[in-house]
Design a protein around this nucleic acid. Structure first.
Lengths: 265, 265
DNA sequence: ATTGAAACGTGGTTTATGCAACAAAAATGT
DNA sequence: ACATTTTTGTTGCATAAACCACGTTTCAAT
């Protein structure tokens, strides 16, 4: 009696979809959840949670870790595993070199993007006291704990990029005059930098407009590529920070436009 | 020969402090790192990384997990372990009840704070199509993936609260008129809600000013407490969403001020 | 009711991690 | 140069998690 043979459900249990939504929600609030904790919480076996993880990670909604899972990353930085393949080394070097350009007490606009995040990271490491204006959440979070004062732009939040865009962003940026800006882009050709993500081109353009020194952080992989929208001309740039010196017509165009090329060792 | 007997250091290695800084930096960019990965990256044994983790988690700088560690939480949500103790259940219920108040297509201002994060979570779960204006990064991130359109406020970024404050925030909020606002506070007495974190009171006050329906989400634990700064009077509120009905003089004051009390089951 | 598919649990095995104690190496102070 | 302290590596073992295969339950469609 009591439990004749069946399992008694001491607790109402969610079904699959519900449970997975809960997992994702949990992950939005906390960087990491453990399988064992979730299993206990949902009153299901660890195998079930594991299967949920498999499904969710298959869709790229979570990142698995031993013993649990974490948010796929609150932007979409390449995971540590992809380090080799994703040209992280190059970007890290570019970021470090670019961070060197920032002087104490300066005001800097920082764009969103994986290269600029690397730059923010390097800047946080250097501990340069400065004021940063950015539309990128990861950049704000990276620098927020340190010696920099961070002004976050308003705007519509784009989850996929962990950044804000829109007319509010542009208006806000337009109110400032800063010493430098650090922007990235998805393409870079003789016509200048270009961007594929809708809305970002205008933000980058505005940042360029409001800055005395204009730096483009660009991976040599992007040389020659053209993104959807034109960001600006080569003449709009003062410096490009790259991992490799451009060649051929691009180099010639850069010289003609008096753009300084800084190669990160 | 070649390697006589000694370990050759194929790679320069960081010393302790440097390595730990790198770990923290890594964690700012990625929610979770694995011990094995870090060990490989730094070219040290897993035990060494483990010891680093012990030291860092002792200082509360990271949160350990099986196989790795994660950021202590990019705001300061209570960890899953503290769930029972930290009145999360109450807040979850309050958040769910408050989320019910939001109708399709409405525009809502959402304050920063752990209770409002719970509310955002519930709102994301419901999938109510609406426009949200918030100064809280976690709220933006929670709702950003779903059916809500999220407008993030500008302002100075406070890492400890994962939110923005300041005159820019106030100016921005002042430009909108919305259907509802959902605010929390660190204290609630007959004099009205009050807040302890510097700068937040003004934001909450502004949100109240710009909204047609004004909701305060408040845990009964806060009844009677008075925070540093006065946010507003009881009469500035339309509704309070609570886990338990207030008693005595507070209840009387609420009735006198015509504030509706919604008790989350 | 029957049946089939999907979801879930269980048990056993394999692998990865945690932990602790000790040894080796490096840094530091005298 | 020597001794001391700190840091790191190594080993062995306990434990937790991953994985796999199979049986059971649940649920829905007929």
């Amino acid at each position: 009696m009591g439990k004749s043979k069946a399992k008694q459900k001491d607790q109402a249990r969610f079904k699959k979809g519900e449970r997975r939504r809960q997992i994702l929600l949990e992950l939005k609030l906390r960087p990491h959840v453990r399988i064992s904790e979730l299993a206990a919480r949902f009153n299901v076996s660890t195998e079930t949670v594991r299967r949920d993880f498999d499904a969710l990670s298959g869709e790229g909604l979570i990142a698995r870790a031993h013993g649990g899972a974490s948010a796929p990353t609150q932007g979409h930085y390449p995971s540590l595993n992809e380090r080799e393949s994703a040209r992280i080394d190059e970007r890290e070097r570019i970021g470090q070199r670019a961070a060197d350009l920032v002087g104490d007490g300066e005001t800097v606009m920082i764009d969103s993007g994986s290269t600029t995040i690397q730059m923010a990271r390097a800047l946080a490491y250097l501990g340069t006291p400065c004021t940063v204006i950015t539309n990128s959440i990861p950049v704000a979070m990276t620098l927020g704990h340190g010696t920099a004062q961070v002004l976050l732009c308003p705007g519509e939040y784009l989850a996929a990029e962990s950044a804000v865009v829109g007319t509010e962003t542009l208006e806000f940026l337009a109110r400032f005059n800063v010493d430098r800006c650090m922007i990235g882009s998805s393409g870079f050709s003789e016509e200048g930098p270009s961007e594929s993500v809708r809305g970002f081109a205008a933000v980058k353009r505005m940042m360029l407009q409001r800055s005395t020194h204009r730096h483009l952080l660009i991976d040599s992989e992007k040389f020659g590529r053209k993104g959807l929208a034109h960001v600006g001309d080569l003449a709009d740039l003062n410096t490009i920070v790259v991992d490799q010196r451009p060649q051929g017509s691009l180099q010639a165009a850069l010289e003609a436009a008096c753009v300084e090329t800084v190669v990160a060792s």
